[in-house]
Write a protein that binds this DNA or RNA. Structure first.
Length: 462
RNA sequence: GGCCCCAUCAUCUAAUGGUUAGGAUUCAUGGUUUUCAUCCAUGCCAUAGGAGUUCAAAUCUCCUUGGGGUCACCA
C-alpha cells in the first residue's frame, strides 16, 4: 500500500508551493488506493502557532484535498522521540555534546577563516571525561565520516554525495531536550508507514541526514521523489514576497479550486497535449516518476485562462451558490439562468463575475459620456422610441431570442443597421459600452424594466 | 565559497537516437458580434555554447556558461 504525506511546518498560511506537493502526494496515494496523511511539524515551540495549522486545514478543505486519519502533531509526540533518542544513546549511536554555543561559533569562524567547510569537529564523540558544568548538552548522532551516500530518487535519478563533503555529527536533540527536524522527519515517516515521500527538492540535501537516522534506527527507507521548485518571474524560489502565495488569497481573488489544482498539476508534469484535467483524471493519470527535473516559473496568465475555462463550464446552480461567498446573491432571482448564461462566458474569475451582476441588475445612475457621444448620433432617440413601441406591442417577450426577434423586426422595418439600435439601447440599459448581448440583458430585466430604462434614457438624453 | 540539482519558444510543456521540433498560455492579425469579452482562424517565437560518440543527436558522453537549491540547538 502506498502511503504518502504532507508535512508542513505551521509558521503561516499554506502557500502555493506547499499545495502543489500536497496535491501530488494526494494524487499518487489516491491513484494507488493508498493513504495520504497530514502531519504538522511543530517541534520548534517558539515558532509554531495553532492558527497556522488551522489555516492549512481550511485551505485543504477549500480545494477539496482530504487527508486520511487524524492529523499528526509532532508537538504531541515528545515521548516517542525521547524513546528513540534514548535508544540511540544506549546503543552508542548518539552522544551528548557539551560544547557551548559560543564554542560552536568560534569553531565555525576559524573554519571559515581557513576556508574550510563549517562542520562539527566531533570533539565529544568519544568523550568519557567529566562534563563541563552549567551546560545542557545537545544530543548528536554519529554520522559516517566517509563513504558514498546514494539517493535513488524517483525524479532526479541517482544522486550521490560524499559523506565527508556534507555530513557531520548533527544535532538530533537540543539543549532543552526537544528533537530537531531531520530526526523527527525520519522517525515519523518511518513510524507512520510513509513509503513514498513526495516533497520539494529543497529537501534533497537534507535527505542524507535523514538517511543516517533511518540507518541508525534500522528503519526501512521510503522511496523519495524530490519535485522541482516553483520559481517566481525572476527565477528564484517562490516566497512570501512574491505576492499571492497564500492559497486562500486565491479564493478571495475569485479563483476556482479546480482551476488552481489543474494549474498546479501541470507545473512540471504533463500527459501529452492535455491541458484540462478533472480531479478524477488527475487521480487516474498522475505519476510522480514522470515529473520534470527542472524548476518551473509561476505564470498567472495560464491560471487565468484555466479559471475562465472552469467558470464557463460551471453550472449556473454552482455559480449561484459560489457567488454568495463573493457578496452577491442571485439564487432568488427568477432570471438567474439568463443572467449567468450571459455573464459566465465573460468572467475571468468569480470576483469579476460578482462585480458584473449589479451593473446589469441595477439601473444606470448616469450615462457614460463617451458612449453617449458614440451611440447617440443621428436619430438614436427616435429609434429608441420606436423600439419601445415595438416592445409594447409585442406580447410574448421572455427569452433572449424573443427580444432578439424584436430587434430584428425593428431594424428591418426602419431599414437601419443593427448598430443603430444596439448601441443606443446598450447605453440606455447599462449606461455604458461593454457587457453582454442586449437580448440577454433584456431577457434578464424583463419587458417592463427594459421599457422603463429606455424611457428614462430618452428623457435624460434628448 | 563547498556540495547537490537543473537547462526545448516570453511562460507551461511534447518529442525517451530518425518529426518541416508538436500543443497550450501570452502577444499580433483577421473573422464572428449591437459593444466588450468569449469563440474561431492564422501568424510570430525555442533545442544556452563547444567538443565527442553515431549513418543519424533536443535526446548519449565530456567541457564551458548560465540559473537554482542547500550548507542552524529553523522546518
Amino acid at each position: 500500500m502506498v502511503v504518502t504525506r504532507f508535512a508542513p511546518s505551521p509558521t503561516g498560511y499554506l502557500h502555493i508551493g506547499g499545495l502543489r506537493t500536497a496535491l501530488l502526494s494526494y494524487l499518487w496515494a489516491r491513484r494507488n488506493g493508498g493513504k495520504f496523511v497530514l502531519r504538522i511539524e511543530d517541534t520548534d515551540k517558539s515558532r509554531n502557532s495553532e492558527a497556522a495549522a488551522e489555516a492549512i486545514v481550511e485551505a485543504f478543505k477549500w480545494v477539496g484535498l482530504e487527508h486520511d486519519g487524524d492529523i499528526v502533531y509532532q508537538s504531541q509526540r515528545d515521548e516517542i522521540y525521547a524513546k528513540y533518542i534514548k535508544q540511540l544513546l544506549d546503543e552508542g549511536k548518539a552522544y551528548k555534546c557539551y560544547m557551548s554555543k559560543d564554542e560552536l561559533t568560534e569553531l565555525r569562524e576559524t573554519q571559515m577563516a581557513n576556508k574550510e567547510r563549517t562542520r562539527y569537529d566531533g570533539r565529544y564523540r568519544d568523550f568519557d571525561g567529566t562534563p563541563p558544568e552549567g551546560i545542557e548538552p545537545v544530543i548528536r548522532i554519529k554520522a559516517p565520516l566517509c563513504g558514498e551516500i546514494v539517493i535513488d530518487d524517483g525524479i532526479k535519478g541517482r544522486v550521490s554525495f560524499q559523506a565527508e563533503d556534507i555530513l557531520d555529527d548533527f544535532i538530533i536533540a537540543r539543549g532543552d531536550g526537544s528533537p530537531t527536524y531531520n530526526f523527527v522527519v525520519a522517525v515519523d515517516d518511518a513510524l507512520m508507514g510513509i513509503n513514498e515521500v513526495i516533497r520539494g527538492d529543497d529537501h534533497l540535501s537534507n535527505t542524507p541526514k535523514q538517511m543516517v537516522v533511518y540507518e541508525a534506527l534500522g528503519f526501512e527507507l521510503p522511496k523519495f521523489y524530490h519535485v522541482p521548485m516553483i520559481h517566481n518571474a525572476s527565477g528564484k524560489k517562490l516566497s512570501k514576497r512574491d505576492g499571492a502565495t497564500d492559497v486562500m488569497a486565491y479564493k478571495e481573488m475569485g479563483y476556482l479550486p479546480e482551476a488552481l489544482l489543474n494549474f498546479l498539476v501541470r507545473l512540471g508534469w504533463s500527459n501529452g497535449d492535455q491541458e484540462i484535467f478533472s480531479m478524477d483524471e488527475m487521480m487516474e493519470l498522475f505519476d510522480p516518476s514522470n515529473i520534470n527535473k527542472s524548476a518551473s516559473i509561476y505564470n498567472v496568465d495560464k491560471l487565468d485562462w484555466l479559471n475562465g475555462h472552469y467558470i464557463k463550464n460551471s453550472s449556473n446552480a454552482k455559480l449561484a451558490a459560489l457567488l454568495k461567498e463573493y457578496g452577491v446573491d442571485v439564487e432568488g432571482h427568477d432570471k438567474k439562468e439568463f443572467l449567468l448564461d450571459a455573464l459566465k462566458e465573460r468572467a475571468k474569475n468569480m470576483k469579476e463575475l460578482a462585480e458584473m451582476i449589479p451593473t446589469i441588475l441595477n439601473a444606470p445612475e448616469s450615462y457614460d459620456e463617451k458612449a453617449v457621444k458614440k451611440a447617440f448620433k443621428g436619430d438614436a432617440i427616435e429609434v429608441l422610441k420606436a423600439f419601445v413601441a415595438k416592445l409594447e406591442s409585442t406580447t410574448e417577450l421572455h427569452l433572449p431570442s424573443d427580444f432578439h426577434a424584436a430587434m430584428e423586426a425593428l431594424v428591418a422595418e426602419m431599414e437601419i443597421g443593427f448598430g443603430k439600435i444596439g448601441m443606443p439601447l446598450r447605453v440606455a440599459l447599462l449606461g455604458a459600452m461593454g457587457g453582454p448581448g442586449m437580448d440577454s440583458v433584456m431577457a434578464v430585466l424583463g419587458k417592463d424594466e427594459t421599457i422603463k430604462r429606455i424611457n428614462h434614457a430618452v428623457d435624460v438624453l434628448s
